[in-house]
């Protein structure tokens, strides 16, 4: 299998990422190696729905959305694998550590890699940075239910 790196713009990445506006939280995939890693970024701007409410006097990106951005980037690394384009990806378990606020006007650089992939379960690591400073780190367990289910033991009573 070829593992060539390529990049995706905001339109192209929607082929591999089912989330849509206003919940598509990545703008550009600068480098993706299918099944291995995906890097890219999200631009933060005042003109986003969550800033006026989180918080009115101190706009910063909600932590749950930072995690979501990392998960969306990891999903691109998974769904670019030939044959997986149309699959659904679910999150099973995430552990995140937040270190710095992410504010409007900043660029949120996302770096994710697939640590292991077995039977439709993908263990991923992700780091979000702003100006080279680490903003959050996450360990994510993602699944492709279609594949995962085929490995589940059959129920004895049908």
């Amino acid at each position: 299998m070829e593992n060539k790196a390529f990049s995706l713009d905001s339109l192209e990445l929607q082929k591999y990422q089912p989330n849509r506006y206003p919940f598509l939280l990545i703008d550009y995939v600068t480098e993706v190696i299918p099944g291995v890693s995906a890097k890219g970024y999200k631009n933060l701007t005042n003109n986003e729905w969550f800033f006026p409410v989180h918080f009115p006097d101190d706009p910063n990106m909600p932590g749950a959305l930072q995690l979501e951005a990392l998960a969306q980037m990891a999903t691109v690394a998974i769904l670019t694998v030939p044959g997986l384009e149309d699959k659904v990806v679910h999150g099973l378990k995430h552990t995140v550590r937040f270190r710095r606020e992410v504010r409007p006007g900043e660029r949120f650089d996302l770096e994710t890699e697939i640590v292991s992939s077995k039977r439709g379960l993908f263990q991923c690591k992700g780091i979000g940075r702003v100006n080279g400073e680490i903003a959050c780190e996450a360990e994510m367990l993602l699944s492709v239910p279609d594949i995962f289910k085929s490995f589940l033991p059959k129920r004895s009573n049908g």
């Binding site: 506006y21 598509l24 703008d27 631009n43 701007t45 986003e48 006007g105 660029r107």
Partner: peptide, 20 residues
């Protein structure tokens, strides 16, 4: 100053759907 553009802005899905 500067302005960042993100796909998560209200005008991109509409301008244009196949070419934001």
């Amino acid at each position: 100053g500067h302005k960042n553009f993100s796909y998560n802005e209200w005008f991109f899905p509409a301008h244009f759907q196949d070419e934001p």
